[in-house]
Amino acid sequence: MADTSETAAAPRTHVSLQVNGTTREVDIEPRRTLLSVLRDDLSLTGAKPGCEMGNCGACTVLLDGEAVYSCLTLAVECTGREITTIEGLSASGELDPVQQAFIAHDALQCGFCTPGQILAMKALFATNPHPDDETIERAMSGNICRCGAYPKILAAARALAGTQAAQQ
């Protein structure tokens, strides 16, 4: 018989999350990350686990409009804050301009990092509608794309920024 201190079910806490404009109630262990709650409890699998240690950016979501790594964010920290995932960006059925630019410029290949890239760019344009290349690169440098779609991610951002004609 195993030691009860290790086998007892972990305590749970009730959390109310504002996700894509809707209130979602979950009973979770306090240690759960926002990423795992979004994916496993709320079936919002657009945010991806790439490294689960804050190195790759595939799990990026918006928290009160700011891009955060949801793998490093505890779900319990998010009470009362507005969470936007990639699923929330086109909830009306129409694609967000950032999503449209990603398709038009082919700013993706395998697409696994793409939701994170799009949300990182969305956060950039929310605060700075006309970023220059340096600003774009700084904002996007926390999101790894192993396929190397970077030139086209930059082209998509430039097109949205209206600072330079689309490169492709």
């Binding site: 994916r39 496993d40 699998t45 995932t85 694609l95 038009a104 082919d106 993706l108 696994f112 939701p115």
Partner: peptide
């Protein structure tokens, strides 16, 4: 020609093995 599955890839609806539940 933009990708025929571009929409799935930019909306999070594309299902990867990791996403199967």
């Amino acid at each position: 020609t933009p990708r025929v599955d571009g929409r799935e890839r930019v909306t999070g609806s594309a299902q990867y093995a990791y996403d199967v539940q």
